[in-house]
Amino acid sequence: MTIDVRPVAVPERLGTPAAAEFEAYVELTAQIDESVWGHRRFSYDAPELLPEFLDDRYTGRRAFAAWDGERCVGRAELQWERSEGARAAEITVGVVVDLRRQGIGSELLRRAESHARSIGRQVFAGFSDVALVGLELAGPRLEAPDGTGSIPAADPGAAFASRHGYRLGQLERMSGLTVTGRSAEFRSLLDDRLAERDAHASGYRLVAWTDRAPEELLDSLAVAHASMATDPPAGGILYDEEVWDAKRVRAGETRALAGGRTTLVQAAIAPDGSVAGYTELSLPSDSLAVFQWDTIVLGPHRGHRLGMLMKLGNLVRLAETAPERTDVYTWNADENDHMLAINIALGFTLRGMSAEWQRA
């Protein structure tokens, strides 16, 4: 068997001969995700992913694929922040189940690391996932520097990362919330929280929007986005600072729309009119799943119970705008006790772990 590893060409549009390899790469990624989670809900399809590759003004992307003849059998993807002084590159590697432990993943990782070095990145971060059933694998456990969770050392992703010199820097809990039939409950909880607002969040108000933020909030929303890179717990992982402005906010909105995703945003507005915090729900097209992305309350505004208020407000909006959606999924650092407590109170339950690895 001869395996050919080469960069994936990014097409201008899908459904053309020039797009065939990119589309095969996306399908292979979905197959690998399915081998871990038992479903493809977490996978981007080609129309969703292509805009992320085409707009690389703020975040660079590069993909490599391994080919056995015309069959795509492995993939590696890099992402890196383009801001001045950025040092890290994020790398994700995967190989089809029937061809693992034959050196394909190692070659993909080598190619990805080599490209990262060529663009001046010295710190490599890697990612692997462990579904709930996989957490019960017998044998030694690996623990991150912070938090109380652990994963089996024998998990295929963990074993691969450890074998290549990566250390476990952080664990994220992947949690899910089934929302079917709970709209009245969320509305009641939100009403209760709003009734308490004068005691805990006097002067703050909620503002909601779909897909595109109000023009007058863009600048302070950009500040909140930049804080998402540095404020949440980082464990033992180095995260580069991200430079955000109004144009970058708009660019992200445009990419999501181009990929067919609807974004529901709930923001807390401070007495001075600036964004004190925000939370996002991302709704991919043709899916029953919803993804809880960013949630942040900026430091000066913490202690007013805004996080729960914003999340409840967005869950109510979700029930009103997309009642067919069944489950919300979210990822949180295992040591992020405050955010995890909010999620548990809402009914989120553990569905698996995502491990973040780093090698310098």
Rank of each mutant, 00 (worst) to 15 (best):
A65K: 04
A161Q: 10
D33F: 04
P152S: 09
R250P: 09
V26H: 03
L49V: 02
D337V: 03
I151K: 09
R193K: 14
S183E: 04
E34N: 14
L78V: 01
L340K: 00
V316S: 01
H301K: 09
R62V: 13
G203V: 08
R182T: 00
I269R: 05
E185V: 08
L340F: 03
D327Y: 01
A125E: 12
G85S: 11
G85K: 09
S106C: 07
P232E: 09
R87N: 07
N314Q: 12
G313H: 10
A125F: 01
A229C: 05
W244K: 07
T263D: 09
F186L: 06
N314M: 09
S227C: 15
L194W: 02
V36C: 08
R111K: 11
I119K: 06
R41E: 08
D146T: 08
G105Y: 01
M1C: 03
D327N: 11
A86Y: 13
L49C: 03
G38T: 04
E23L: 12
T2K: 13
L78I: 09
H39A: 08
A201D: 03
D192M: 08
I269C: 10
G299L: 14
V93G: 00
G157F: 07
P323N: 11
L14Y: 07
A355T: 12
E320M: 06
F64H: 10
D56N: 05
A289K: 06
F64C: 06
N343D: 13
L49T: 05
M1L: 01
A256N: 14
V223H: 14
R61S: 08
I32H: 11
D198G: 14
A131P: 09
E52Y: 05
R41A: 04
G176Y: 00
L315A: 02
A251S: 15
A355Y: 10
Q102K: 14
L318I: 06
R205S: 12
L142G: 08
R82K: 15
A251H: 00
Y44P: 06
D294V: 09
S188P: 06
R141K: 12
C72V: 07
V297D: 01
L315C: 02
G157H: 00
D334S: 13
A65G: 13
T349R: 14
